[in-house]
Amino acid sequence: MTQGGFGSGAAGGTPDRSLRLVGLRKEYVRGTPVLRDVSIDFAPKGMTAIIGPSGTGKSTLIRCVNRLVEPTAGQILFLGRDMAKLHGGELRTARRRIGMVFQEYNLVERLTAIENVLCGRLGYVSAWRAWLRRYPAEDIDGAFELLEAVGLAERAGQRADALSGGQRQRIGIARALMQRPDLLLADEPTSSLDPKTSVEIMELMVELAGRRDIPIVINIHNVELAKRFAQRIVGMTGGSVVFDGRPEELRDEHLKAIYGGEAWL
């Protein structure tokens, strides 16, 4: 197994992988913002964890980055472009550069594990070739390498609905890395998993992305996991950032500010 052979960045050197959000605002209902002009500069490597209570706009924030949710105002600067201004083919080209891992895995249940991983290449492969399953040979090699890296090589031919939750999330990670992304977004990737599997998934993500120098932006409920794996923690409440610092700086008073109350501490 070659170390990080696949997905280790574009051939002509690594571009600047830092993501900048400037005054990002989202209103699902006019006049009631879910995100209140959020501005964050993310580092070009390492993991940034976004924590905060449910319904505070973390998921919306992550989904705005690759425009699964349309931001109402603000800029999303990545790889020298403003993601918020892109449309159609340009937007799809930009999305290819950003991998995403989901809470419910979002695998295509009736396709095999290997084909789910290859779905990460759909932005590069024409629909016609995808229909005939004529993926380029290097993509197929890459998919097998990633399956091996997540420890599921022998499950390649199994359908996704035959896999356990942890296995599905591993496939989800492999699919995201299959895009050879310059940024990895993770939306509550461990919320549907048991504690042990959660740690394994976090380790896997950190290791595989770290090897490829891909920065991770993760939104996560579990503060302990965030402190253990992230280099930076952003605490949000009511659509605004209320804490931004290193994990060891996060104290109980910060958590109180983020989540409110203290009985749970």
Partner: peptide, 12 residues
Amino acid sequence: MSAASRRNPFPV
């Protein structure tokens, strides 16, 4: 894993 199944993950 054999080279053949690696090249063609979609058996007909």
